[in-house]
Simulated scan of single mutants.
Amino acid sequence: MRYQFVGTSELTQTPAVAVVIDVMRAFTVAAWVFARGAEKIVLASSEDEALALKRRHSEWIAVKDGAPSDGFDEVNSPARIAASDLTGRTVVQKTKAGTVGALAVADAPLALCASFLVADATARFVRAHQAEQVTFVVTGDDGRADEDLACAEYIGHCIGSDSVDVAPYLQRARYSDAAADLTEGLHRGYKGIHVDDVDYCLEVDRFPFAMLVSREGPLTVLRPVAVAVE
């Protein structure tokens, strides 16, 4: 199996198999959304689209990057989402990097979103499909974010092996620019960050599901898919 690692802007064609990575924080949040009982996540292309969906479906939960703002129910913080009861709910998510990458490959025959929390399940799901090539879409910093690259490389190695030491990959993520930015934002009192967000993003293989992207009518939807232990 061959791998390539690209930024969202570097996608020149729709890959056969795509794994979209956003560790801090979109797909760590997404994993917790499903762990807290949500049925699906609708990926919005803009904040305006997210708010329009919320107006049409008042029972849906709208989540965005940044500080809290009118019309949105929650911010893109895994620690805050982990404290929510989302049983049976639909969540609309808009972020500046992760959801953009997912929308870019939504027409792929197989597209998954991932973070460290679902790394092993994602690797096993991809392995079961016996793909010839996997395109990892590294969404942070236009393909250069080390926390996303580390997670992508870890998943890639897990596809080919059942005994991969995650410690070096987690260390890269912990000392990444994104982790530093979250910590600095917290110190400045930025209201879109929880004190535990970085630690939540560095949990490994917490959940036994992969997260599958698909088109459902006019919507791009993310759903959890249980992956059996081999």
Rank of each mutant, 00 (worst) to 15 (best):
G7M: 11
T8V: 15
L11Y: 08
T12A: 04
T12Y: 06
T14P: 02
V17K: 01
V20K: 00
I21W: 03
I21C: 07
M24D: 02
M24G: 00
R25S: 08
A30M: 03
V33S: 06
G37D: 09
K40L: 12
I41S: 04
V42L: 12
V42C: 09
L43V: 15
S45T: 15
S46Y: 11
E47S: 05
E49N: 01
L53F: 03
K54T: 15
E59V: 02
W60H: 03
I61A: 00
A62W: 05
D65H: 15
G66T: 15
A67H: 10
A67I: 14
P68A: 08
F72K: 02
F72N: 09
V75E: 02
V75R: 00
N76M: 07
P78D: 10
A79L: 11
R80S: 11
I81L: 13
L86V: 05
R89K: 15
R89G: 08
R89S: 15
T90H: 08
V92M: 05
K94S: 13
G98E: 02
G101F: 04
G101L: 13
L103M: 15
V105A: 02
A106G: 06
L110R: 14
L112D: 12
F116V: 12
V118M: 12
A119D: 12
A119K: 11
T122I: 10
V126S: 00
R127D: 12
A128C: 09
A128P: 10
H129P: 02
Q130M: 10
V134E: 04
V137P: 05
D141V: 11
D141A: 14
A145C: 14
E147P: 08
A150E: 05
A150N: 03
G156S: 10
H157P: 00
G160V: 10
S161E: 10
S161R: 01
V164I: 14
V166W: 10
L170F: 08
L170Q: 14
A173Y: 08
R174F: 07
A179G: 08
A179L: 04
T183P: 01
G185A: 03
G185H: 04
L186M: 06
R188W: 00
Y190C: 01
H194K: 09
L202C: 06
V204I: 14
F209E: 05
V213E: 00
E216W: 03
P218E: 06
V221K: 02
L222N: 07
V225D: 01
V225I: 12
A226R: 12
A226M: 06
V227R: 00
V229F: 01
